[in-house]
């Protein structure tokens, strides 16, 4: 385990540090994507790497996502460990075939002969008015396809440990960072994501949820930026005498079903908070698991707080109305408590 330290990092710095450590330790690791070189990645995930490792290991690509994601898969098959960045998760449509028909399936289809150990990282999330093609989370879309692992850190400590683990994983890993958690100067960012981060290398296993707040009355299962909204709601609920447990899934694939179930067996009430669209996504999946495996423990209907089934609107009051907020989470907590 990591040693004690008091150094705090933003999530962007934690991610670039994780990649730096793995590049230094393993010559097979390289970075590829749009503006990852001298620019340092639009969201700071590759800051400083070009200067340190040069253009053969930090490669700027044309705006040709299908080509460079497919190329990363090929390089991974030949023994390298690519980290590919595609700026916004909203942009993945242009390269989707390489992802869900090739990257996700080649290992299976080839009977294990071909593998693609790589990290595909991208920014997600709303909250700063970037409208419908730049604000989605969409992790549920990728979690739906067998063969991809899906990682969604909520703070700098997890971001570093999960990134290092993702790089070392023998499978394709989709790594989503929320823009509103990164600590970038030009965009609003949640201070709760800035936490103490050890300087040395460490890993967090994929598929292990984190109970960020213990509680006995209600379980909130969530991920990414919503972890902090859930904790805020839990803090307010505590004042009213409601004890809320907040489970940060950290990864959707693999999913830590065990932690969800043991929490439900303790609290008997479930609220799911998800920044993805309501229908056919993470919130439905968690609710289904509760219904299938913990129904006899539930004392209230499950409540889901998610983005309603509308594209993310641009205008601030409209956008704020669709992103799950602390008051909406509190309403759900109150509902399941008073049911």
């Amino acid at each position: 385990m990591a040693t004690e330290t008091s150094r705090k990092l933003t999530m962007a710095r934690a991610i670039s540090e994780a990649i730096d450590l793995e590049m230094a330790a393993d010559s097979r690791v390289f970075v590829m994507g749009e503006d990852v070189g001298p620019y340092g990645g639009i969201f700071g995930s590759t800051t400083g790497l070009f200067t340190k490792y040069g253009p053969n290991r930090v490669i700027d690509t044309p705006i040709s996502e299908s080509a460079f994601i497919g190329a990363a898969a090929g390089a991974a098959a030949e023994g390298l460990r690519p980290i590919v960045e595609l700026m916004f998760v909203d942009f993945f449509g242009v390269a989707m075939d390489q992802i869900y028909n090739h990257l996700a399936k080649n290992h299976y289809m080839s009977g294990g002969s071909v593998s693609h150990p790589l990290v595909l990282m991208t920014a997600m999330g709303a909250g700063y008015n970037d409208a419908a093609q730049h604000s989605q989370t969409l992790y549920g879309l990728f979690a739906h396809v067998p063969g991809l692992k899906v990682v969604v850190p909520s703070n700098a400590y997890d971001a570093k440990g999960l990134m290092i683990q993702s790089i070392r994983d023998p499978n394709p890993v989709m790594y989503f960072f929320h823009k509103g958690l990164l600590g970038l100067g030009w965009m609003p960012s949640d201070d709760r994501a800035v936490v103490t981060v050890p300087e040395e290398s460490y890993t967090i296993p994929l598929g292990r949820a984190n109970i960020v707040r213990d509680g006995t009355d209600v379980t909130i299962v969530t991920i990414g930026a919503m972890v902090h909204r859930a904790v805020e709601a839990a803090e307010i609920a505590a004042v009213k005498g409601i004890s809320v447990e907040v489970v940060d899934l950290r990864t959707l694939v693999p999913l830590d079903t065990g932690t969800i179930l043991s929490s439900l067996k303790k609290t008997h009430r479930l609220v799911i908070v998800d920044e993805d669209y309501l229908s056919f996504g993470m919130s439905g999946e968690i609710a289904a698991i509760a219904a299938e495996q913990a129904l006899e423990y539930l004392e209230a209907p499950v409540r889901r707080v998610a983005v309603p089934n509308v594209p993310i609107p641009y205008s601030r009051p409209l956008e704020q109305a669709v992103i799950p907020s602390t008051p909406r989470i509190l309403d759900a907590v109150t509902y399941v408590t008073e049911f």
């Binding site: 409208a131 419908a132 093609q133 730049h134 594209p311 609107p313 641009y314 205008s315 409209l318």
Partner: peptide, 18 residues
């Protein structure tokens, strides 16, 4: 639209890029 108002081209749904 760029100021996110209801009188905008897209009633505030779209913004600069839409």
């Amino acid at each position: 639209e760029l100021l996110g108002r209801e009188t905008g081209y897209c009633r505030g749904f779209g913004g600069s890029m839409h």
